[in-house]
Design a protein around this nucleic acid. Structure first.
Length: 461
RNA sequence: GGCGCCAUAGCCAAGUGGUAAGGCCAAGGUCUGCAAAACCUUCAUUCCCCGGUUCGAAUCCGGGUGGCGCCUCCA
């Protein structure tokens, strides 16, 4: 069985075969750190985190790089608004990225390069393009000459002629063709700058990724990812830069995730409906948000709403409940040892779903099938230690694969424990009025109690 | 104008030629001091519409209709 991935280059699902057997080099476009990231950004981060986890799950050694754009127009604008420096703004939102991403179960990449730390490599990349005849200098700016690169448009499947006629790109006097794009930009007064052979300035947007990929992963990589909106022009331009200088291919597979709508509307600044993960993780169990982001296959558009989030919270509770029940039963004394549980059929189903272009919608369906099956097993009562253990381990390994494992940081507060104990005593004395009063009191604080054969279980909303 | 995507129940979502997974919601039942959780049962004769191919189509082909994205910073 082989993994198949939809490759934006071909527009088809292709059998995944890395350049070097067993090793995957992967790059995904990270955030411009001028603000907290919103759920649209989050989808891309979660999707490629999931891709990375699954490739590892299937035995690949994955080297994953995701950048931070820490100098650009938006950052400069933001720094001016706040009357502070670009460095300060970038630093603040990089910290915020790591904390919000971690809440979403997104693992850190192997390298998180920053533009400001890659300046020498960017400058020599641009120099190389000029020397090779693919770029020209115009009044301190450096531009890529799209007419010189034969493959321009192969990712977006646009011909140069069409792009130029339909173009809304700002045509300046500096550009030889409307589709030419900036590699290096002269600094205006008050803007951050770096010395270069073309004067003081800073990199254009696209060049950083080409330079970073080259620096950290080499001349060719296996997977390049990002949101669908990056397909053109960003990734098209990266291909042009990298392949002009280094030869084909920049990446063997380009993967693009779909959009998120908010209440069936496009999320956009002008509608003022952007939703930031930084705020959302305060309202919901962050695993519910991650589950939402993985609930559909990554290329489908998904729609965010409070109703859907409510469904996700319920779904997470169903998983936790199954996990808790399995582990609670294992604590029982006098369990027969039994025989190992054969989970290979389940595993086959999951792998088949995920191998098919990371079909998390299907895979999560299978996860819930397994939850139901495990609950039935528990319900029948004919349980044994091996059966419980093996099911528990299977469930755990799947939750880890999806990044949905429960964090064990929730310790009961002392007074909660005390009240639960008090209620247990009341129940033993058959003082149900008192027991129910305590339960109601805890519920007001969002704490739900469940009486089980193994004692009281509780969870927080 | 060019390139591309999508349409499956109240909500979400799998299913790409063999007769509709799964989750949430809802109804009935079992269990429970009562709840909750869990389990069992029920919940789309039907997959936007119209043609066609086929023994057979949600799935393939043609034509509609309705949404959407990119071509400008953008996940």
């Amino acid at each position: 069985m082989a993994i198949r991935l939809y490759n934006s280059l071909s527009g088809e699902k292709e059998v995944f075969k890395p350049l070097e057997p067993g090793v995957v080099k992967m790059y995904s476009c990270g955030p411009t750190v001028y603000n907290y990231f919103h759920i649209g950004n989050a989808r891309a981060f979660v999707v490629f985190d999931m891709v990375r986890r699954y490739l590892r799950y299937r035995g690949y050694q994955v080297k994953f790089v995701q950048n931070f754009t820490d100098v650009d127009d938006k950052l400069i604008k933001r720094a001016n608004e706040l009357e502070t420096t670009v460095d300060q703004v970038a630093g603040q939102y990089i910290d915020a990225y790591f904390s919000d991403a971690s809440a979403l179960g997104i693992e850190q990449a192997d390298v998180h390069p920053r533009v400001t730390e890659t300046m020498n490599d960017i400058i020599s990349f641009v120099s190389g393009l000029i020397d090779a005849g693919y770029a020209y200098v115009a009044e301190g700016d450096v531009l890529f000459d799209t007419s010189k690169f034969q493959g321009y448009g192969k990712l977006s499947k646009q011909s140069l002629a069409e792009l130029q006629t339909g173009s809304r790109i700002e045509v300046t006097d500096l550009k030889q063709n409307a589709t030419d794009f900036t590699l290096w930009k002269t600094a205006k007064p008050g803007e951050p700058w770096w010395d270069s052979p073309w004067g003081r300035g800073r990199p254009g947007w696209h060049i950083e990724c080409s330079a970073m990929i080259h620096k950290h992963l080499g001349e060719h990589i296996d997977i390049h990812g990002g949101g669908h909106d990056l397909l053109f022009p960003h990734h098209e331009n990266e291909i042009a830069q990298s392949e002009a200088l280094l030869g084909e291919p920049l990446a063997r597979y380009f993967m693009h995730n779909g959009y998120i709508n908010i209440n069936n509307e496009k999320m956009s600044k002008s509608l003022g409906n952007s939703i930031f993960v930084h705020e959302l993780v305060k309202r919901y169990d962050s695993r519910a948000l991650r589950l939402f982001l993985l609930s559909a296959q990554y290329r489908s558009p998904i729609n965010y709403s409070d109703e859907v989030m409510g469904q996700m919270v319920a779904a997470i509770r169903r998983i936790d409940s199954c996990c808790d029940s399995l582990s609670a039963k294992m604590e029982m004394l006098y369990l027969p040892e039994g025989t190992p549980f054969d989970s290979s059929k389940w595993e086959e189903r999951l792998v088949e779903a995920m191998d098919d272009d990371m079909n998390t919608g299907d895979a999560i369906g299978i996860l819930f099938d397994f939850v139901r099956d495990s609950n039935s097993y528990l319900h029948e009562g004919n349980i044994d230690r091996e059966g419980l253990h093996d099911r528990y381990e299977k469930l755990k390994s799947w939750l880890q694969l999806f990044g949905l494992e429960k964090k064990s940081s929730e310790f009961p507060e002392e007074d909660v424990t005390k009240m639960i104990e008090e209620r247990a005593q009341a129940r033993i004395g058959r003082d149900f009025a008192k027991a129910d009063a305590i339960r109601a009191k805890l519920l007001e604080r969002g704490i739900h109690l469940e009486d089980t054969a193994q004692g009281v279980r509780w969870w927080r909303e």
